[in-house]
Design a protein around this nucleic acid. Structure first.
Lengths: 339, 339
DNA sequence: CTGAAAGCGCTTACAG
DNA sequence: CTGAAAGCGCTTACAG
């Protein structure tokens, strides 16, 4: 069965293709008799009409595709990969659901490729970049005049009295980590970051946010490291944590659950008590985090909810509306046994 | 800067658009003077020409998009999700790399949506379904005449003397699990499967494959369960494993590392020794599996290599060539402390 | 060896 | 209120 075109439905409904187009697109200023209108709608439905996306794209110079740019992997044929947690699919599916409600299609094209390629091949209407864009990608976007949304880098915390202004996800995450540790009585914490290249930007942003949060909350955070891929980082992590404990650090906030898991491993190996000798706090609430011994405390990122928000922001840039504020409660602490 | 069209390059190179098209597409049967040819190629390059994908798609009735249909999630606004391991992104990126070498673009559209929607919106040239397709999706594919590749369901194991015929990934996985356990001396094993709806097909295939592998190898595998989402399955898992141990089961093969992690958790809680009282073997080699206590033995799926193979199969169906055999060594055992 | 023309399926001024 | 026509950017018979 070949596709049915607007021509087909025009013929069947005894009107011109223009009329079909007008009623299907609900063009204002065009008065179509209610009767004709019904007939067209009817036949369109009964014929199972779906507009040809290529033709629409050719005409409008834009497809109905929204491109989700994920960039949390190191590509490469080897296993040299920092997997973004198992939660990243949640984001995509949530965004996909919203975008679909607009009558568009969300698509993601794999990471590690310059955006330019996907841009010319897909001609998306909008690009969504939950974790930010490289300057190169931003350039490509500007050149091809495709609108995009990426969260603003964390700008610090709302001023006192600003009336609950929006915080970035990163800021809210950092604050959740630091506040939780403070509540548990810690006054000197360390930050265990990653040096994996593919997530450098986000790692730097998080570290900055944690420092700001710490000083805002009255916690000292002068101890910080950046470790390579978790699989290889055990020795260095051991040395670091021993030093830190000697310096009076009582808790570590980690880039994510993987590094937190590493820290837990290190502490167990040397017989340290968790959290008494050192508390450990991750990020992501990975599927296996509660299976660690002891079960890992972590800050969850509500990915599905964040996805919905991300989509709303995209919609706003498309419509020229102001951006909606980040909803609260996106970064709940999951306190288990390591804090 | 608006896109440059073949018209532009025709003008600049002083030829007709037809000529441009002929040289760019290397049309055989058309003799274009080497000189003209060079000039066209030259100007195309210098102008940064990229064919308009919408126009190509409109003309050919097909885009240059390859759609990767992943289906390893339960969608839904709640957290009721079985995350496919953190390794799934590896697959996508590997396939994307191959597809890109064909001059096409790989795209994935999120899971939990009927394929029909993406089909009509994207008009892909090919659909790749690493984990198989539902009958509904297959119908949609047939109706829209889009070619697709999905691995054949496991058909059992090659006959003796068949000369190393291709095995499915599922079969090879199952065999790896069972053989490893046999080598470790186990003669009566259990299979800990998932009942999560979103992966029912794959769960059933794996279970069948494990049973076949067990009988092929001379191991008894009469003990099997299907547990719900890991987070809620602890009590049931406990009851099951206790029963099995009482029945003389000495090892469990699991659907994936999440369920294996659950089993480990259960055994620790009741003070059983691993692997002496019960050995545990997962699948996936998740990023956190080695952090468990004791570190989890598992079978890794070489996702990147599998992705390359998947792409090659897709290419073969596109070209009408015979399918390449599944490469060997895609499912190495990672023996750690639980077996 | 190269060019003029049709046509893929849509939308939207522009006439009636 | 509705229709005929142009045009988005490509490819490919079909003439020269």
């Amino acid at each position: 069965m070949s596709r049915v075109s607007s021509e087909d439905i025009a013929r069947a409904a005894q009107v011109s293709r223009a009329t079909v187009s007008y009623v299907l697109n609900d063009r204002p200023g065009r008065r179509i008799s209610a009767e004709t209108r019904q007939r067209v709608l009817q036949t369109a439905r009964s014929l199972g009409y779906v507009p040809n996306p290529a033709a629409m794209a050719l005409r409008s110079g834009r497809s109905d595709i929204v491109l989700l740019q994920e960039n949390a992997w190191i590509p490469g044929p080897d296993q040299d990969v920092l997997p973004l947690g198992s939660t990243s699919g949640l984001l995509r599916d949530a965004v996909a659901r919203e975008v679909r409600a607009w009558g568009m299609t969300l698509v993601s094209a794999g990471t590690g490729f310059p955006l330019g390629h996907a841009l010319t091949h897909l001609m998306p209407t909008l690009v969504l970049a939950p974790a930010g864009l490289s300057e190169v990608d931003r350039d490509a976007l500007r050149r091809s005049r495709v609108p995009w949304y990426e969260p603003a880098p964390p700008e610090g915390f709302p001023e006192a009295g600003s009336g609950g202004e929006a915080m970035s996800l990163t800021a809210s995450l950092a604050l959740a980590q630091v506040e939780h540790l403070r509540e548990r009585g810690h006054r000197r914490i360390g930050y265990l970051n990653t040096s994996v290249e593919a997530v450098r930007d986000i790692a730097e942003q998080r570290e900055r946010a944690v420092r700001q949060a710490a000083s805002a909350v009255g916690v000292e955070c002068d101890h910080r490291v950046r470790l390579g891929p978790v699989e290889d980082a055990l020795p260095e992590c051991t040395a670091t944590l021993e030093q830190w404990m000697a310096d009076g650090v009582t808790a570590v906030a980690c880039f994510n659950d993987l590094y937190a898991g590493l820290a837990v491993k290190v502490l167990r190996q040397r017989g340290s008590r968790i959290p008494d000798d050192l508390a450990v706090l991750g990020v992501d609430d990975e599927a296996m985090s509660w299976m660690l011994e002891p079960p890992l405390s972590t800050v969850r990122l509500r990915m599905a909810e964040f996805g919905t928000h991300l989509a709303a922001c995209g919609r706003a840039v498309l419509d020229g509306h102001p951006l909606p504020p980040l909803p609260a409660g996106l970064t709940p602490v999951v306190a288990r046994a390591t804090t």
